[in-house]
Write a protein that binds this DNA or RNA. Structure first.
Lengths: 234, 234
DNA sequence: GACGTTTTAGACAATGGCGCCTAGTTTTAC
DNA sequence: GTAAAACTAGGCGCCATTGTCTAAAACGTC
């Protein structure tokens, strides 16, 4: 009977320690089962078993299966959104060592936003249940990839203004930057596999090198020129 | 005992014309419902209704739900595979007008292999049910994207040998070519939307332009030079 | 027109999940 | 220490679905 007493994942330790822990445990378990089975095939009993919680407790916190589902999606989306914001705030602002800085950024982006658990969960769920929940799809689109490309567009524009890049259409460049960043990993990420650090770095380096070949400074300045040639622009 | 009179795949239209039509009708309807609902949520009754066929007929042709599912996947995969082969066979072999030829190729690739009904169906299904049917995922990977990047790698190498491209790693370039081709469309394709011809052409042009900026002839020849400067290479 | 095959419509049991309820136990608050 | 709240285990009714079965009807062939 008591297969596992695993007391969930984390708890704050104050007053509603138990309740809060239960809630998080349920959310995590539900995310796991929903992601693996899809909404229809996921059973409340299995979620309860994974969460080490009685079925009634789930119905106590979330009125019905659908309520639990949207709560799970909201929870994961909030986490993913915060992480994306955090990663974006570290986009390189400096034209020195642009290739290395961009590579490091792509590594962080892939590792923490796209190839991580939440990112895969959201993509899979949107593709699986997006038809049944259009608002879910729209919300994911605006908060996830939409925000990413919009923000990247502005960040690339800043770099272009400093003379580090030559870009005609910032939105296109942003989408291509994301596409290149995932070119080597999307096959692996699509299904279970998680890339190793070596694979992450290789993928990022390939992506940034090609991106800079296309959008970097023209060849005349690129070869042997110091980055400070057009200094005052920043 | 006479479970199967099915004489393989197609017939000239004599005796069992009706049977073949029923089979195809069932396959099409099942593909539609499986794609929209997923395997678990798809009901045989709905498939029968969409196919305008009695439920018993489905159980007559396919022993159980699972049998029908794998038949559907095989069918769609065969179609998609044939289409991919057809599109790949039209990859530009000539270095003249490379940008236009590549753009036309990308348009065909997106239109007939990636943004079309079968392509979306397979991607969605692999992501939805790949965990339950690993062989399905593996088969799709090898026959679909795997074959695409492998073939593209060889085709790009041929162009590089003619001096039209400068590529260090053909596999990476092939993956990036595919990634760039879908950069503008994947958000639209991920869910219902089908891109218009104008969107298809714009996406292809953006992709090819960036790809050629990165892998095209070096800048010294690129700027203002006629493509015939090194004529004998073609 | 007779015959065999296929399809149809509906009924059928079996299964399993959802959502509710209750009785009993544990945890938390005061 | 006690009362309230939350949790557990299990049972229950309801409903949808799967897969089988049967009798009637449609189809094509001779």
């Amino acid at each position: 009977m008591n297969d596992r007493m695993t007391p969930a994942v984390r708890m704050t330790g104050h007053s509603q320690r138990g309740q809060c822990a239960k809630r998080m445990s349920i959310l995590d378990a539900a995310a796991d089962v929903f992601c693996r089975q899809g909404f229809a095939a996921a059973s409340i009993d299995e979620i309860a078993a994974v969460a080490c919680v009685s079925r009634q407790t789930i119905y106590n916190h979330y009125r019905e299966k659908e309520t639990l589902f949207v709560a799970v999606v909201e929870d994961v989306m909030n986490r993913a959104n915060a992480m994306l914001f955090s990663v974006l705030s570290a986009f390189p602002d400096n034209a020195d060592n642009l290739e290395d800085d961009l590579t490091a950024f792509v590594i962080r982006l892939n590792k923490n936003c796209i190839c991580n658990h939440d990112g895969k969960f959201l993509r899979k769920l949107v593709q699986t249940e997006g038809e049944r929940y259009p608002h879910l799809f729209e919300s994911w689109r605006q908060h996830g990839p939409g925000k990413l490309t919009t923000a990247l567009s502005a960040l690339l524009a800043r770099l272009a203004q400093k003379g580090a890049l030559v870009i005609d259409d910032f939105d296109v460049a942003a989408r291509q930057f994301v596409a290149l960043s995932n070119a080597d990993l999307q096959m692996m990420t699509l299904f279970g596999g998680t890339p190793t650090d070596a694979e992450l770095e290789k993928a990022a380096r390939n992506a940034v090198r090609t991106f800079l070949r296309a959008y970097g400074r023209p060849a005349a300045e690129k070869f042997g020129a110091e980055p400070r040639l057009t200094a005052l622009s920043g």
